[in-house]
Write a protein that binds this DNA or RNA. Structure first.
Lengths: 231, 231
DNA sequence: CGCTCAATTGAGCAACTTCAAAATTAGTGG
DNA sequence: CCACTAATTTTGAAGTTGCTCAATTGAGCG
């Protein structure tokens, strides 16, 4: 399933869109397509990355192990996202682990090629800058939510986000299934608390749970919960 | 107390160090020095910033109001830090408020001048990128701490950070005084919980409290608490 | 001295965590 | 396709932590 970056629409979703034809050729010649199986690491916290991973397909969780042994999911990365960008830019070992949540197709792009473009193409660098600025803003929001919202609010917010990100299947359920443990890891709580919050929302008819799948039945109310206007 | 950027050592602490002589002259000609009094806003959440603020002296808190009306302090900014950078880069209104915690001297640099340098000086852009990458990593850590550490651990960590950042006075106390409410705002808790955690640390002889000032008496033990190896 | 704001303490309550056990689901090999 | 094992989900219950409201103390200031 090898293909050329020049023809890859995915790059429109990230900073690579600022590259010109020649740069794309260069990168396409050096990139390596990889298939990652569900559950496998793309990379692990502390690893020194020699490049970044551009997600063509599949979903990955970016997580960080805390001292107490539980890991906190910082971000869910989907098609078009570039992983490892931050640590490659600052030339440090990565502060996060990336694990595939389903089978993935990714392109590995060596950092030498990126560095080349950073040095010669100001538009690319600016695009990277914009990307980082956005990530930073998102991180600020997460910090506030973690500090000031309760589990019920954070889960409601996550559900709205997930439906938005993964769309819905033919039955109206969120088009991607997460284990309760992963949901708990995103929300930053114990999985039991997560399960209880979900089944409470279920009982209140705000969501429907069918196996592991979740459907949102009342987004308005869920949003109100997030905003602290309802409980 | 007007002075020229060319002679200002502060810029070594941030991305402005990548500017060349001509750029520094240009910026020096357009910058505006301001004195901000304790308690005053540098800018307020939602405001459209026309430039950034380079801190020459004093301390500022960057905070974000959450829906429940409490504000969460995202960062404490000191000498050398540039505020408003993120929102100027992404040309959005700012997502944070900046309030002076003591009297401050800052230089306002118009965004047109920054944009000029971003467009013409790749080194400057790269410096900005590095800065953002660092900020992002810090934010990731904060998220994990918020999600997985308790108030006692977060406060211990903050104290170690504060002593490191503000040094100590002649009596060994941290060289900057924060209200308990601000500490609570940083740590993301109610001020009562913050007070109780502090006075517990005090009773245990890990810290000494004298009025509002705090001295660390056993950093090893405090670090152990942060790391979850002691309680 | 009286006023105001910050700090402290107390007490009750709600939210979360943790450990343990039961129920359900998924996966594997025959 | 079934049976069996492993893993995940769910529920229960006890114990902590942290939140909130209210009252008290203390410090700074005109």
């Amino acid at each position: 399933m090898e293909s050329r970056c020049e023809n890859c629409i995915i790059r429109q979703l990230n900073a690579l869109k600022a590259l010109d034809k020649n740069e794309l050729k260069r990168i396409s010649d050096t990139k390596i397509s990889k298939n990652i199986k569900k559950g496998d690491f793309l990379f692990e916290e502390g690893e020194k990355l020699n490049g970044v991973f551009c997600v063509r397909n599949g979903v990955s969780k970016l997580s960080k192990m805390s001292d107490n042994g539980k890991d906190q999911i910082i971000k869910i990365a989907t098609k078009g996202e570039v992983l490892g960008q931050r640590s490659v830019i600052s030339e440090e070992s990565t502060n996060l682990s990336a694990i595939a949540l389903n089978d993935m197709e990714v392109c590995f792009i060596p950092k030498t090629e990126l560095a080349e473009s950073v040095n010669t193409n100001p538009n690319f660098t600016k695009e990277l800058l914009l990307q980082m600025a956005t990530d930073l803003k998102i991180a600020d929001n997460i910090i506030v939510n973690m500090a000031q919202k309760n589990v019920r609010q954070r889960i409601s917010e996550l559900l709205l986000y997930l439906e938005d990100t993964f769309n819905i299947d033919d039955e109206g359920f969120i088009g991607m299934v997460f284990t309760r443990e992963d949901i708990a890891g995103i929300v930053g709580t114990a999985k039991e608390a997560c399960i209880r919050a979900l089944s409470k929302l279920n009982k209140e008819s705000l969501i429907t749970i069918k196996g592991k799948r979740i459907k949102l039945d009342n987004k308005t109310k869920l949003q109100a919960i997030v905003d602290g206007l309802a409980n």
